[in-house]
Design a protein around this nucleic acid. Structure first.
Lengths: 273, 273
DNA sequence: CATCTAATTCCGCTCTGCGAAACAAGATTC
DNA sequence: GAATCTTGTTTCGCAGAGCGGAATTAGATG
């Protein structure tokens, strides 16, 4: 096998590292998708060279892949800069994904109600690789600083929502995730680990996780996992606001239980009918 | 070459039909992406068989592709139903795409202002294949019936925004689009064509296109194209409301010019600084 | 004009990806 | 409970798609 297998390190959807010498695995497809993945919200314009170094693929291969992706409308080429950017085709797939998450429609009104009542922001998210992605978001009055919204990516290990997702994931996924986060965080891991373990216990005991300024120093939040019985995935909600608005006591005694209650209602509505 | 090339008919990004026997074209990648595309907002759960018939690919091939996509986190398998659905990985790519469209950030406040002032909904969209996709949306007070929002797909030929996009596209793309729409619409085409041609003239003369109930019988709207000078694509705005709110005269004399003015401002802001 | 750097093209080789057909696993019917 | 659907997986030999090192082109820079 070739030497360009850096993406191995980063798969993380399935429950265990795969045998990648697998006869069923279509490498060309994986590589093409990997090219799309190197475009991130912060890195939106890339040339073939940059793509090549970032993916570890040889230049010639990248040329072919970008050519194909451009032909199909997933990338577009900015002639003036000799760079590529993601094109609407990539959007279309994302929107189809979003449209098929019934949980969003069901959850939205509940989230809105809670956001209005508490004045905080309420979000619904799920996990992709080592990130959490918001798939629905209700801005509270005190939204203030928070530069978040749908599509935002936040870390797994230091946020209330991320920790709730961890708690809701099957054991194998959780192990895999923690292993990889540990590797990435290096020295910071021991401290992070403590927070995670405390949060997992908290979810088991009280139903919600807490993060007090562990990600953004001025934001406190609670999180609750939701695993729909139809097996459609693992989700989590959070409710967060600036620290001066939610102190720890209020988080534990009021907001946490309230968010939990909301999730119970959504859960019932999802499986009922 | 194999007989499974239905997707040829549907490419539509580049300026002219490609030589697909091209040595540079990675077929396996194209096929894998085609598998993702058969999942639409209305068809969110598909089994291998269904995917095979919809794409025209042989079963064995589909098995391999779905296996790969699942491994990578773009599809997830619902065991209970023996079906696949789009997974968060697909979302992530879409969000990265959105995040890199500077036009959204720039346009948003302007759109909001116009929506508030007119009471109508204002949207920003771009094209993917034969559809228009909303990438930003401001709901007006009179939003009422309109079941739209970000990610909505609307037709090209019968909507104000679609027609504005047509007007803003390079000649070759426009030709290609019209040819394909004609083919799809069949008998209805002659009538649709008239509306399109009138709209193209209208954009040239007055700067905006109009659709009065030609898509949704109770919605009137105007549209204005915007082609940023950085070559990042072709976009269009619309401003629409129920017919009783926007009669034709008001559309032509007030809303159209106002939307056009808004777009000029956005354009200036985009290229300036 | 020489010297960068980035993108594309060439081209021969290899191993990937292909797909018909066989196989497996449930459901349904009679 | 044998026979017949339907849907998904696996096998396996072959063809040629995709690969990637190296050469080439195209622009920018000094």
């Amino acid at each position: 096998m070739a030497t360009h297998d850096s993406w191995k390190a980063d798969i993380g959807t399935l429950s265990e590292a795969v045998a990648l010498d697998d006869r069923k695995f279509v490498v060309a497809l994986a590589r093409g998708l990997e090219v799309l993945r190197v475009f991130t919200p912060s890195e939106g314009l890339l040339g073939n060279q940059e793509i090549a170094t970032r993916t570890g693929l040889p230049k010639a291969t990248v040329t072919r892949l970008t050519y194909t992706l451009t032909t199909l409308g997933y990338l577009s080429h900015i002639d003036r800069l000799e760079k590529y950017q993601l094109a609407p085709g990539a959007l279309a797939i994302g929107y189809s994904t979003l449209a098929n998450m019934r949980i969003r429609q069901v959850a939205q009104p509940h989230m809105l109600a809670l956001a209005n009542y508490t004045g905080a922001s309420v979000a619904l998210g799920t996990r992709d690789r080592l990130n959490v992605i918001y798939i629905e978001f209700c801005r509270g009055k005190s939204a203030s600083l928070l530069r978040l919204g749908m599509g935002s990516r936040i870390p797994v290990a230091t946020t209330a929502m991320g920790r709730a997702l961890l708690a809701g994931s099957p054991e194998k996924d959780r192990q895999w995730l923690l292993r990889n986060i540990a590797r990435r965080e290096g020295k910071k891991w021991p401290k992070i680990r403590l927070g995670v373990e405390r949060a997992l216990k908290s979810v088991n005991n009280r139903g919600f996780s807490i993060s007090t300024g562990e990600w953004q120093s001025d934001i406190n939040a609670v999180g609750v996992p939701l695993v729909p019985s139809d097996g459609s995935g693992v989700f989590a909600f959070n409710c967060g606001a600036p620290t001066f608005h939610f102190d720890r006591a209020r988080l534990e005694n009021e907001i946490g239980p309230r968010l939990l209650n909301m999730v119970r209602n959504i859960e019932a509505e999802l499986s009922g009918r």
